[in-house]
Amino acid sequence: MTTSETTSALSLARITCPQDVSAALEHALTDCWAAVINGGGAVIPSDCPPVPVTAAGLAPATAHIVQGLAPQRRALLVATVVGSLAGWLVLTRQTHPLEAHCGVVNHVQTHPGFRKRGIGAALMRHAADTAREDMGLERLKLSVRDGLGLEDFYRKAGWTEVGRWPKALRVGPGDDRDEILMSLAL
């Protein structure tokens, strides 16, 4: 299932079925992801090849995300500008019964060529609306790496820092960062 919303040149869409992701879109997702990682972004999958990454190296991780799409459980939200992929994220419902009212936002990214245009903020608003209206969720959570100013971006979008795992993320030798836990009540 795909739904979309268009505002001027920016178009936002929600995709919940793997068959609704064309080969061209899957390739664009992977290219965006590689550009974000190579540009210093913190959206690195656990099985990521060494930086600099290639789209070919990230293709299996992108395919895994696409194959996991399911109505009411996992949605891919994409932002396009005049037909070009500008950013994307993944919204997933928690499966444990005690957390079924919550969702998790992952892989939030804006292509470097589209930064400073409000794409990320639009995606985050779309994620909140989708979670509340289409998935019936009451709360969202995400985690970010400190040292990049990401927590400020999310605070401006209404998110609250609820905790930290000190030095939980090893970016490189001698470069351990806090994992910042954030929440948004819907």
Rank of each mutant, 00 (worst) to 15 (best):
A100N: 09
A70S: 09
T92Q: 02
D152Q: 11
V162T: 14
S4G: 15
C48D: 03
D178A: 10
R139Q: 15
V105Y: 01
P166N: 06
K116T: 08
G83F: 02
G40N: 04
L181G: 04
L186D: 04
L76R: 08
G120P: 02
D146V: 11
L89R: 00
A168F: 05
V104E: 11
A121C: 04
R14H: 12
L69C: 09
S143D: 14
E99D: 11
N106I: 06
A63W: 03
L169N: 13
A59W: 08
H27Q: 14
Y154K: 07
T54L: 05
L89E: 00
L150C: 09
A157T: 03
L142C: 03
V144L: 02
W165E: 15
W33T: 04
C32Q: 07
P112V: 05
A127Q: 03
D176P: 00
D134C: 14
R145S: 10
P71I: 09
C48Y: 09
P112M: 05
L29C: 13
L140I: 08
G158F: 11
Y154S: 11
A122H: 06
D146C: 06
A168P: 09
A79R: 04
W88K: 00
W159M: 01
C48K: 08
E151W: 01
A35M: 06
S8G: 07
E151Y: 01
A23V: 11
D20Y: 07
P50A: 10
V108S: 06
G149F: 01
D20G: 08
H107A: 14
R115A: 15
H126V: 02
A168G: 03
A127N: 00
D129T: 13
A185K: 12
P71Y: 06
A55P: 14
H64D: 14
A185M: 11
V162S: 13
G172S: 15
M135V: 05
T110K: 01
Y154P: 10
G136K: 00
L10R: 10
Q19N: 13
L181F: 08
D175R: 11
L137P: 09
L10Q: 10
E99T: 11
L140H: 04
T16E: 15
G83I: 00
A168K: 10
G147Q: 13
G39H: 12
